[in-house]
Design a protein around this nucleic acid. Structure first.
Lengths: 194, 194, 194, 194
DNA sequence: CATGAATGAGAGTTCATTCAT
DNA sequence: GATGAATGAACTCTCATTCAT
C-alpha cells in the first residue's frame, strides 16, 4: 500500500472517528463508515476488516498524541501545583466536551473486549497516569508545596476520580460546577495550608 | 394482568437478568432472552417489547432492593466509621464480583440512552449516595471519629472513586489489592489520627 | 417442528431437487432455492442451513428410494440374465435422462467433499452394487446361464463402466447406441454361448 | 504479443495449473490466480479473461503433451500385450496420484460446460482412446496374443472402466488393490489362455 | 394467552472487472 | 504493458417483529 493509500487510510480513520464520536462503538457498522466516507462497500475492506480494527487504530493514534500532550506543555519553571492544575484542567476539558469525544466508543469497545490483561490499553493508561501523578506529588512534597502521606494512594485516587467523572459525564451528565468542586477538593487535600 | 402472568413476567425478568449479566446489554437480543426463557418468540412480546424495556425493569427492581440493603444492615450502635467501612466493603464485593454482575449491561444501557437529565437513574443513585455519605461523614465528625473540612467533597470523592474502580474492574481487571489500597487511602484521609 | 413444517420441509427438498438437477451443486445458492420455493430469505434458514445440507438430505432420500427399486422389481421366476438385463436397462435409463438428473450435482458435491472414507456415500453405493452384481453373476453361473471365472471382477467391471458412462453422458454426451453397444458387450461376455 | 509476454503467459498457466490441481475448478477465482502468480489484478486480465479460459488453455497444452506420451514410449519390438500393460500402468499411476492432478478441475469444468458436441475435448479423447485401444487389440489378435470377439466393445470397456475408476478415486478413494484387480480382470479377459 | 412459522430489512464479506496512472 | 485502488453486484446469515392458529 503506497503513498496514496496511506492518505486514504488516514482519511477513513479521521472520518470514522467522527462516526464513533457520534454513535459510540456498538452502533457503528462498516456500512456507516462506508457511507460517512463516501466510498464503496468493498473499498473499505481494502483498508480495514472490521470496526474493531478501525477503532483500535484510532485509539493508538490518539494515545500517541496524548502522550505528546501530556509532557509537552510543561515548562521548566512550573511548580508541581501548576502542573497538576494544568493537568486537571486538561482532564476537565476532555470530560465536559460532548462533541468529538470517543469516550463512549472506547468504553463500549473495552466492554466488548474485556480483558484482565495487565498490558491492555486502559490498564497501561491507568498505570502510566498513576506513575506520573505520583512523581508529581512527590516533587510537590519535596518542594514544600504539597503535603501527602501516601502519594501513590493520592495519585490513584485522582485517576479513579477522573474515570468516575468521565462515566458520570457520559451516563447522566455532570455539570462543570460538580467537576470544579471535586477538583478543588483534590487540590486542597494536597496543598499545604498557609 | 392476572396472578399467573405476573409470575411469568417475573420469571422472564429473572432469566433475562442472567443473560444480561453474562453478555452485557448490546449483545443481548430478544432471541437470546426467548431462548434462555424457553418460551415462544411471540410470547415474549406479550410481556415486553424490547430488550431496553426488560433491562430497565430489572434495574428498577434492583434499585428498590439496593435501597433496602443500604439502610438495612445498620444497627443503632454502629459508629460512623463502622458503617462507612461496612459500606465500602459491600462496594468492594460488588466491584470484584465477576459473575452475576449487571455492571457492563448497565453501562452499555446508559451509554445507549445518554441523558443529562437530573432524574436519570445513574444520577439519582449518585446523588443519593453522596447525600448518605455526606451525612455519615458529618455524623463521624460530630462523634469525633472523622476529621474533614469538606464533607460533601469527600462524599463525592468516594462516589467517583467507586465508579472509577468499577470501570477499571470491567475494562482491564483490577486486583483486590488495588481496591484495598484505595479504600484504605480514603479511610485514612477521614479518620482522626491518634 | 411439527406436522406442518415437515410438509414444508419436504416441499423445499422437492423444489431444491429441481434446482440442483438443473444447475448442479456449486452453482446453486441459498438464494436460488429461496426463489424457486417462493419463500423468504430467512424462511429457508428455519429448515436448512446450507446447500450442502439440503443436497445431502435429498441424496439420503433418493438412496432409500433406490434401495427399494433395486430389490423391488425382481420376481421369483426371473432368471439371473433377466434380472441383470433389467438392472442394466434401469441404469441406462438413468444414464441417458438429461432432465431431472442429479448426477452432476452429486459429482460436484462429492468433489467438494472429497473423502477417502470407506463409509462415504459413493463408496457404500459402489460396494453395495458390486456385492449385488456378484451374487447375481454367481447365481447365473449356478443356473448355467453365465460363464465367468472372476465374478467379483466382472461385477466391479460393470460398476466402473456404468460410472464411466455416467460421466461421459454428463461431460460430452453419449448416444443411446454407445450405451447399448457396451451393455451388449458386457452381457455377451457373461452369457454362455449356445 | 512479443517474446516476453509469451513467457509471462506461460508462467501464469503453469502457476494456475498448480492452483487448479489443488482446488479444483469451481473454487478457483481470478483472485486466487493473481495471488499465486504474484502479479497485479489488472495484469492477469491482459492475458486471460476468465478462469474458464485459463483452464481450457492448460488442458490444450496437456492434451498435446499426452498425445506425445501416448505414442512416445512404444518401441517397435514391444508386443501388443506389453503395450497394453504399459498403457494401463500409466493410467493407474495417473489415477492414483493425488497431488498435481487436474482430474477434479477437469470434471468440474466440463460439468459447468456440458456439451453433447462430438468435438468436445472429453469426447475427442474418449474416441481417440477407443481407436488406439481397438487397433492395439486387433494387433494382439493378429499376433495370437489376444482373443476377442468384439475389439471395439473391449476398447470402449477399458475406456469406461478407466473413467469410472478415476471418478471413484476422486470421490471416495480407491485403493491400489482395487485398481490392480480390475486391470488384471481386463487383461485376463483378453489374453489367450495357455 | 401462547405458539412458532414466516417475513424482510440489513449487516458482513468477497470478487470480477474496470480504469486512471 | 502493468499496477492496484475502486466499484458494486451478489451471497450468506441473523433477528426484530408480526400474525394465523
Amino acid at each position: 500500500m503506497g503513498e496514496k493509500s496511506a492518505q486514504k487510510r488516514q482519511y477513513i480513520l479521521d472520518t470514522a472517528r467522527k462516526v464513533f464520536a457520534e454513535k459510540g462503538f456498538k452502533n457503528v457498522t462498516m456500512k456507516d463508515i462506508v457511507e460517512a466516507c463516501n466510498i464503496s462497500r468493498g473499498g473499505l475492506y481494502l483498508y480495514f476488516e472490521s470496526t474493531d480494527q478501525i477503532l483500535l487504530e484510532i485509539l493508538h493514534m490518539e494515545a500517541e498524541e496524548t502522550d505528546d500532550l501530556f509532557t509537552g506543555h510543561i515548562s521548566k519553571t512550573d511548580t508541581a501545583a501548576d502542573i497538576l492544575t494544568l493537568f486537571l484542567k486538561e482532564q476537565k476539558k476532555e470530560l465536559l466536551q460532548e462533541q468529538n469525544s470517543l469516550t463512549v466508543a472506547v468504553y463500549e469497545y473495552f466492554f466488548a473486549h474485556r480483558s484482565t490483561d495487565k498490558n491492555s490499553m486502559p490498564r497501561k493508561q491507568f498505570d502510566a497516569g498513576v506513575r506520573v501523578l505520583e512523581k508529581l506529588i512527590q516533587a510537590g512534597i519535596s518542594s514544600g508545596e504539597f503535603y501527602c502521606e501516601d502519594p501513590k494512594g493520592a495519585a490513584s485516587n485522582i485517576m479513579y476520580v477522573l474515570e468516575g467523572m468521565k462515566i458520570y459525564a457520559q451516563t447522566c451528565g455532570i455539570t462543570e460546577k460538580m467537576v470544579d468542586e471535586q477538583l478543588l477538593y483534590i487540590m486542597q487535600g494536597l496543598i499545604v495550608d498557609v
